[in-house]
Amino acid sequence: MTLPPLPSIIIEPIVRIALLEDLGRAGDLTSDAIIPLDADASMTLVARQFGIIAGLDVAALAFRLIDPAIRLEVHRTNGDAVTAGETIATVSGSARGLLTAERTALNFLCHLSGIATATATLVRAVRGHKSRIVCTRKTTPGLRALEKHAVRAGGGSNHRFGLDDAILIKDNHIAITGGVAAAVERARAHASHVVKIEIEVDTLDQLEEVLTFGVDAVLLDNMSLNDLARAVRMVAGRAITEASGGINAETAAAIAATGVDLISVGWITHSAPILDIGLDFIAGR
């Protein structure tokens, strides 16, 4: 199924801030100085390496906010795989507008495509198992909606978007509250009927205690493969199981083989390398 784009009302404020950061107080001095006002140009967005595309709609908006007359012809879309040298899209219109928006558009497109590519690598690694790759709240401030959308473009799934859409009780919550029982009891009394409760555990003993309270999900943090497999057997379908910690393309398959439902990975949003994409001028147009 094609991944629908995020609504413009979500992405436009983010892109506007990025453009204003680049334009500063005087606009694009270089392009304004040397590019004729009436000059038009066509350029291609070209992948420099294999990867998965994400953020194309964000890049397109960066061009349109600079000049609404700029046209973008899409050849590949979000979620598509591209190879080195493959054209992703063609943009045409005011040469000044294209050059002014270029860096902001590429910053978004390269970063988000890098997230999608990293996610896809992990999704491929766990293929054949029921585990889903999910992202976390370890996102770039201000870019969470875009980065989580990029995870979906790479075939992954989203964990909670913020502090307001689920209850996740972690070690510090338990320590301050005074124990698992008190934390879960207060959470259940506070939550509405549509809010799920998840709790983090580090040991099988903690898991055994947690299971007596009937939570919706358990976060199995930094457990060994043997303990993860034992934890899945202990839960026996009574809650969603989520593994976290030490997950990469080399370890993901073995973690998935333990039978966990979810594998949550922070680095796919906060540390994924960019996908190298360039904007190349088409001579003679």
Rank of each mutant, 00 (worst) to 15 (best):
L106S: 08
T136I: 12
A125Y: 02
C110L: 07
G128M: 10
T121W: 13
L163T: 05
A105L: 05
S92R: 11
G85P: 04
G114Q: 00
T121E: 15
H111T: 06
V91I: 11
V151E: 01
L99N: 02
S131I: 12
A105Y: 03
G142A: 12
I133D: 02
G97H: 09
I133A: 07
G93M: 08
G114S: 04
L112T: 01
T90E: 15
A125P: 03
L109E: 04
A125R: 02
H149P: 09
A118N: 03
G93T: 07
C135I: 11
E86P: 06
A118C: 07
L109A: 05
T136D: 07
H159C: 10
N107W: 03
E86Q: 11
R103G: 09
P141G: 06
T140W: 12
L109I: 09
S94H: 10
A150C: 10
L163I: 07
K148F: 10
S94C: 10
L143D: 09
G97N: 08
G93F: 09
R124F: 13
F108Q: 05
R152M: 07
L109V: 06
F161W: 14
I88S: 05
V82S: 05
R132I: 12
R137V: 08
A145L: 14
T139F: 03
N158K: 13
R152E: 01
A125H: 02
F108V: 04
L143C: 09
E102C: 08
C135M: 12
K148T: 08
R103T: 12
L112P: 00
T104R: 08
T100M: 13
D164W: 14
T121G: 14
G154R: 00
K130I: 15
E147R: 05
L98I: 11
A89T: 01
L98F: 10
K138N: 11
G114C: 01
R127G: 15
L112A: 01
S92C: 07
T119M: 00
R144G: 11
F108S: 03
G154D: 00
V126A: 04
T139E: 05
L163V: 06
C110F: 12
A105W: 03
S131C: 15
K138I: 09
A116S: 03
G162E: 02
R103P: 11
I88N: 06
T139P: 03
G85W: 07
C135R: 07
D164I: 13
G162H: 06
S157I: 14
A118K: 02
A116R: 00
T90R: 15
T139M: 05
A116V: 00
G162R: 06
I88Y: 07
N107V: 02
T100N: 13
T139Y: 05
E102L: 11
V123Q: 01
T139V: 04
A145R: 14
T139D: 03
C110V: 11
A116P: 01
L106H: 05
